[in-house]
């Protein structure tokens, strides 16, 4: 799938078609367009090295490994993940990642991407939380990050478009907005303490502003190879790191606080093309 898409891209460009929202785009092309459209964004332009490395983003290795895992018959039930419905039908991955979190009838709740992936690995493939396949959430070696990177890549260049039609989707998005601005923890921080202004730095890191969609789409474009960690990281890993630095309490994975925050994050990037996978400092 990944290779096919790469081959298709030059063809699309050769016929002179400008990329439409909803059309797959190479993540480096998405980034280059954002950079050109925002020459004054300190956040987007902060790392010349990372911009140069983007065509050879190490996260692309995980795309290939993730593809193999997705189609492999695995787990106690010995089935592939082709039966997993990420919101657009079983096995339909094109554009699925940028339309999450969403409400799922089978669980009667709003689920973010990682929750849904874990749900499928447990329900379809028969893994349990004790299995490393779902227990290990972080790092290039984890199945979760390989699968995440492969599946997310199928939405690269497409606009963030998490649905808000179901009342639970709207409720989670609105609660996420409240959580974003909720001052709390030992040091009184909220998310806006760092993401309320453009061009500000925490030490050497230039911070993205949440209300600037073109900065924010890069900010929420995880999975991304995080150069400082030398590992591909997820949206959930970013939340965990932020909450840790903010001196709130230690957040658990697969919990609805994550889902609500991601519902708001992705809504705040609505209409802007996703960079999947991205490369960050």
């Amino acid at each position: 799938m990944f290779k096919k898409a790469l081959l298709a891209l030059p063809v699309a460009m050769a016929v002179g078609a400008a990329a439409q929202a909803g059309e797959w785009q190479d993540p480096n092309d998405v980034l280059q367009n954002l950079l050109q459209n925002n020459p004054d964004s300190k956040y987007l332009h902060q790392s010349e090295m990372n911009i140069m490395m983007m065509p050879d983003n190490p996260a692309l290795w995980l795309v290939e490994e993730g593809e193999d895992l997705f189609y492999a018959q695995r787990g106690p039930n010995n089935v592939s993940l082709e039966g997993c419905d990420f919101g657009k039908g079983p096995g339909e991955l094109d554009g699925a990642y940028v339309e999450l979190p969403r409400y799922f009838e089978d669980t009667d709740k709003v689920m973010d991407f990682e929750q849904r992936l874990v749900h499928c690995m447990k329900e379809l493939q028969g893994f349990t939380s004790d299995d490393a396949a779902v227990g290990q959430r972080h790092g290039n070696g984890s199945d979760i990050m390989k699968l995440t990177t492969y599946i997310a890549h199928q939405s690269s260049g497409m606009a963030w478009n998490p649905p808000l039609d179901h009342p639970q989707e709207q409720a989670m998005r609105d609660a996420g907005e409240k959580l974003f601005f909720r001052r709390g923890g030992a040091m009184d921080f909220n998310c806006a303490s760092c993401h309320g202004d453009s061009g500000k730095q925490i030490r050497a890191s230039v911070l993205p502003q949440m209300r600037d969609g073109q900065e924010w789409t890069k900010a929420v474009s995880w999975p991304a190879h995080r150069a400082g960690h030398d590992n591909v990281r997820s949206q959930n890993h970013r939340i965990r790191g932020c909450v840790w630095q903010m001196r709130h309490a230690g957040i658990k994975h697969d919990t609805p606080v994550n889902t609500a925050l991601i519902s708001f994050w992705n809504d705040a990037a609505r209409g802007e093309p996703a960079i999947l996978p991205d490369l960050k400092r």
Binding site: K109, A171, D174, A175, L179, P256
Partner: peptide, 28 residues
């Protein structure tokens, strides 16, 4: 959120945010 007794759509955004923090086992 699997607790079917809880209807998150009946809460205000503020109430739901507090509910999510304190009643969903989201923190260690």
């Amino acid at each position: 959120s699997k607790d079917s007794a809880v209807d998150i759509t009946a809460m205000s955004a503020d109430e739901l945010a507090e509910h999510l923090i304190f009643e969903t086992d989201s923190f260690r």
